[in-house]
Design a protein around this nucleic acid. Structure first.
Lengths: 151, 151
DNA sequence: TATTGTTATACTCTATAACTATA
DNA sequence: TATAGTTATAGAGTATAACAATA
């Protein structure tokens, strides 16, 4: 687009592309951040992002149906099933029957779940520091605001 | 985190989460933008993002090896094979042998490829408008800058 | 030894459709 | 009829390991 026939492919090319196409920059940045965060899964007590978010939501909101968790975390219902299966098998969550609606569960955090969450949460700052290292605190806040607007 | 036991799960919950966890906001925003963009694939002449980027790189840099394309677009080499297969089958690209290195191809844009790219590029503004609708032009530039820093 | 292109494979994430039991 | 949970499935996207031809 700049000059008709001179734009060598290299590291610089991708940055120019990222500037032109925020959608693609978003996709690649998301993958890069996820990779960087995943490298710190140790920090989150071996808890993946999905399970971690479920425990966190339950800790903050109390027992909830899988449907409510799905909506709140924007995770598909069919995925939530497996997430809760894993958490239940690990003893971090109990599936009690919801009072007043026998279709739904009241997914409930166990003491072990609360403890595991606490450990995982302690690792989050390091995870974010690692994943967002190139940004200052101010820029991170800016980014969060912009992404919040997109969501 | 705020008060011990009151944070109803709802749309608001996700936004609070996004504010606390830019990594997760990035992941969800990326998916949301990709979905919005995909809904406009008509706008890009039926060309997916990967193929589009390959054509664009070739148009801007001239014939290149798959390796160079992989590096420039941050797409794995094994994925680039299939991308080039598809583009070649569609007649948008030719795989000529590279001069001076019989291992590599010189992937070359055909006239049909150039025409298809031109059509697809015409749809990009509408695609971005649709995907980034919640952001002002200024905010889009801000976002691009921040993502560029992350990459 | 290292690199280009290739294949096979696998893993994650996401989404859909269909089923059951309840409502 | 609509909803909660479940299952099976399928499609992207991404990544690894191994191989042949070539450097």
């Amino acid at each position: 687009m700049t000059s008709s026939e001179k734009a060598p492919l290299g590291a610089a090319y991708f940055h120019q592309l990222a500037a032109e196409r925020p959608d693609i920059a978003l996709c690649r940045a998301s993958a890069a951040v996820a990779r960087a965060a995943e490298a710190h899964t140790d920090a989150t007590a071996g808890l993946g992002v999905g399970p971690h978010l479920v425990l966190k939501a339950l800790a903050e909101a109390g027992p909830a149906s899988q449907r409510a968790l799905s909506d709140a975390l924007r995770i598909d219902r069919s995925v939530m099933v497996g997430l809760c299966d894993g958490l239940e098998a690990a003893g971090l969550v109990r599936r009690e029957r919801a009072a007043g609606d026998r279709r739904a569960y009241a997914v409930t955090l166990t003491d072990a779940g609360r403890a595991r969450l606490a450990t995982a949460e302690r690792g989050v700052p390091a995870l974010l520091e690692n994943a967002l290292a190139p940004l200052t605190a101010e820029e991170r806040a800016q980014l969060a605001t912009l992404l919040g607007r997109l969501l």
